[in-house]
Design a protein around this nucleic acid. Structure first.
Lengths: 125, 125
DNA sequence: TGGATAATGCGAATGCGTTATCACTGCTCT
DNA sequence: AGAGCAGTGATAACGCATTCGCATTATCCA
């Protein structure tokens, strides 16, 4: 059965505190503040497990390794903002209308993805 | 100096004929109809060269290796449609209004990307 | 036409993100 | 407290896309 370990607790806490999608290395850095011995392999194992349990959901951006966000965040339809200064990704609220008019005739759209790029609040001088 | 080879001619022709973004393997398959001996390494070398010459431009979709499209296509602002049946990517015309209202206050948007998913005309039964 | 050399084909090698192996650690339950 | 075993850390190995090395081929220009 599943055990409660300091490593897993730390990793879960990191997602709760971040409130935005995180990559494996970001998780490692943040969780090491609580568990300094934490190893990247453990992060990957835990991410995989949490995914199987549907506790987290992958977030893929063009040309980048997957990040992960909590299921709670993933349940509401939303998109992402990627800061080109600090490479962080943020959740956005809402969506846009009018995507259907981009679809050529004879094509059927079942899903869509929107990514905004720019500078986040932290990096705006 | 640069030389005119059957391989390079074939690869350029493939992009002209396709009218949509192509990945290295798609290029290889198509160009082998003209030059059966064509090697994947040569495709990569040629794509790299064409990129340096700005003849083609990379197209990155979430979780996938880059495809490439002709500069002519890349010059007009546009987005892409990815067919989940055949994995082909198509160019779309136009864009949507209202992206700005997704940007949180304090953030500055400089660019954006939109990807539609679904079934293309060829795969619609 | 022939020589210099850019380009090719082939296979090995790289880089990066991710996963497997395995001895050891430390939860959990009795 | 102690046994049993899930979880961990460290490191090797993997898969994949891409690039390199090098002998061979083929283009271009005199």
């Amino acid at each position: 059965m599943q055990r409660q370990t300091a490593q897993r607790v730390a990793i879960e806490a990191v997602f709760g505190a971040a409130g935005r999608p995180l990559g494996p290395l970001e998780v490692l850095d943040a969780a090491r503040e609580r568990v300094p011995s934490l190893n990247l392999a453990t992060v990957y194992r835990t991410l995989k497990r949490m995914q199987e349990e549907h506790a987290i959901h992958p977030v893929e951006l063009p040309g980048e390794a997957p990040r992960y966000e909590l299921r709670a965040a993933a349940e509401r339809h939303h998109h992402h903002f990627r800061c080109c200064e600090c490479d962080s990704v943020y959740d956005l609220k809402g969506c846009v209308a009018g995507l259907k008019k981009l679809v050529p005739s004879g094509f059927r759209m079942t899903d869509h993805e929107i990514v905004l790029y720019g500078t986040c609040r932290c990096c705006t001088s």
